[in-house]
Design a protein around this nucleic acid. Structure first.
Lengths: 217, 217, 217, 217
DNA sequence: AGCTAATCGAGACGGTACGTCACGTCTTTAG
DNA sequence: CTAAAGACGTGACGTACCGTCTCGATTAGCT
């Protein structure tokens, strides 16, 4: 059966070029920002022909998305090797799970502080801002960004909240997928839209407010 | 005194052109999206010379920001005239205040539902997404976007929450500016990042969760 | 003995591929013109790898030159077989000799009319124009084109003129290689440069003018 | 009445750019040859944007044709000023008329020698070869090349031959437009196709053969 | 009411990047 | 173990916009 007219043969793909393109894309976004990052610039810095980029990715945003996914995976693997069994959570590293010490508030504060660190890590900030911005305006890419990067993270909160529900620390009728937004989304919005400072104090406060509500007890 | 080349005389500015540029910018963003909206395209559709745009605005984003502010003001004025004293809150209209019926939950749900309507109004969606996205990546513009459009809205929640604190309906030790984020930011993130559906049910739930917290009482 | 990378083994050359490349090259030049004929296009139409072309020919022009030589030889052989001994001169066919009926003017007119026919044969026109054009600008190829295709033809005129000199029909002091240009070159230039119509009348006139000169007798 | 969608306004055309483009085009063709002369190269050397070339010319060949016409006109004007009334005929200069001393053979030899000089002038050789080659394959351009450059030259021969007919030095029944090809076309072909050396001796011989014919008197 | 200096529509200009095509080289893979 | 297939780095193509810069032709504020 014939393939469509122009599907490149992935088995012949140059791994060297792929890596060089990822590196160049991330470096350029960090150095000059997303809008001034061009396909030609990436190709040139990667020592690669433009066509090699166009052959494998449909757009600048897609290059960056994959580059960032790759970066995240690498960081996660390194973290898994370096800190196997230690429970350490270095900045810029995906968590495999949120700690479950039995103290929900403490666990959430801990992981949100790690997120604050990550959001401030310059190596991650530029590309993730760029991707988030592109996703705001380009729904298709936005959905992929969310599905591949954001949602897996949020799922960890869902898991931790369910565990808390089982332990009786969270109201059993709550939808965890919505509940988690009470402390995650405010942080996200402050970071994305510069609507306020992003600090440990702030995220600690969010957890307190969210867990106990705004109304008097 | 000699004229400074970069200080155009605003008294001679053509109102006709300004309006035409706003209309063209908003129409183009709605029709073809922000990235494909060009200065040349705006000028051409507005029947205006490119220089007339460059004379008065430093960038495409600024044109759109002012166009959108203008649109919002117009809509607000119309609403103020049409519904003077009625408390009506038509879609696409800035609120001057959040209703204060004494029932905080109901008032918040009401105004968030209005926001849901606004977010779904196509005339507003395209430009506000475009501006939000640009603001994610362009901090300077982002801050103006927030200061001119977002923060005034949020201030209304601050006011309502303070009123509730005075009425004893909200814990007095809360920072209202942070508290409001518990129900506003999740909505914002869902809309911006397509992380979930944006519905009345959802915002109602947010208010319930936020007011009463996640932990059992 | 180790193989030298730049000395392909001609004994293993695929005759099938060679033929397919010639056919594809001639067809493409006729269909889309020389500049739009590409190596990739020839390879693709011939069902051949690009490397198979680059292995055996240094340039597009060389492929076409050999393809055209091959075509000419084929046509000549066919003609030789079909019309053996008849003196027939079908269009598109190299002459082995100019007829020598004793009437120099008639013989020259006859063979020039055959050339007119050949120049108008579309199967020959596209490639020979392409090669001629390339030869104008690429001296090396031009010399090969002349040596392999043009000069052998002109030699036939030299032979006929020498015969005429022996018969006393042409001034004995003339250089036949120059003399032949008086009627051959005008035709060539008209055809190459579109400086005038190419007709039997025209070539007949050329022969008359050339044989008897421009001055009164 | 409206013009078509994209006719540039010739009154605003930059003379400086036009000149720079002509100069760059001629220089590049002379230095690296026609095929390696690129629009980008011309633009870059002329200090001009590519679009400025594409705005005014449809192709590389057209740029070169106009550049060469311009060069010819300039040279002719200079010659007209420098040598007014002297009858001098410097290489690289269009003749306004062929001398008419009463000795047709001498006059033709003189002007053909001047043509030999011109054909050997490197400043003229590269661009005129390039244009001639392009004209062989691109009939439209070829016709313009002939009409603007070649035919005016040939007309001078027509005039001189008519004058000779009136003086009784040329057979009155001859068509001068065809007759001139007997000595002009051989020279053209030798030069274009490298079919032989281009010398004074050769052109002198051509005049002798053409005027007196090949047959004995 | 007329001057005059500005803004205006228009668009040419030098640039940069786009996305495509073909080059000529090199590597992989299927027959 | 040859050759088709085609990925690769390279570089030019022709197009779209960028932001700057001139042009007359209004056009509005001051004399």
């Amino acid at each position: 059966m014939a393939h469509n007219q122009s599907a490149p043969d992935a088995t012949r793909r140059s791994e060297r070029s792929r890596r060089a393109i990822y590196d160049a894309a991330l470096a350029l976004v960090a150095e000059v920002g997303y809008p001034k990052t061009t396909i030609e610039g990436i190709a040139s810095r990667a020592g690669v022909g433009k066509q090699t980029i166009y052959r494998w990715w449909p757009s600048k945003a897609d290059v960056l998305l994959e580059a960032f996914l790759d970066l995240s995976e690498q960081a996660a693997e390194e973290a898994a090797q370096d800190h196997r069994g230690t429970g350490g959570a270095p900045a810029g590293t995906q968590q495999y799970a949120i700690p479950d010490t039995g103290d929900l508030a403490a666990d959430l504060k801990y992981v949100l502080r790690a997120t604050v660190d990550e959001l401030r890590n310059p190596a991650f900030e530029a590309p993730s801002r760029a991707l988030a911005a592109e996703g705001v305006v380009n729904e298709e890419l936005g959905r992929r960004f969310v599905a591949r990067l954001l949602e897996p993270q949020l799922q960890l909160y869902v898991d931790r909240l369910r565990s808390a529900q089982e332990a009786g620390d969270v109201r059993p009728d709550l939808d965890p997928r919505i509940a988690l937004e009470l402390f995650v989304s405010p942080l996200a919005q402050r970071w994305l839209q510069h609507t306020g400072p992003v600090t440990y104090d702030y995220t600690d406060t969010l957890v307190d407010y969210a867990l106990h509500g705004l109304t008097p007890r």
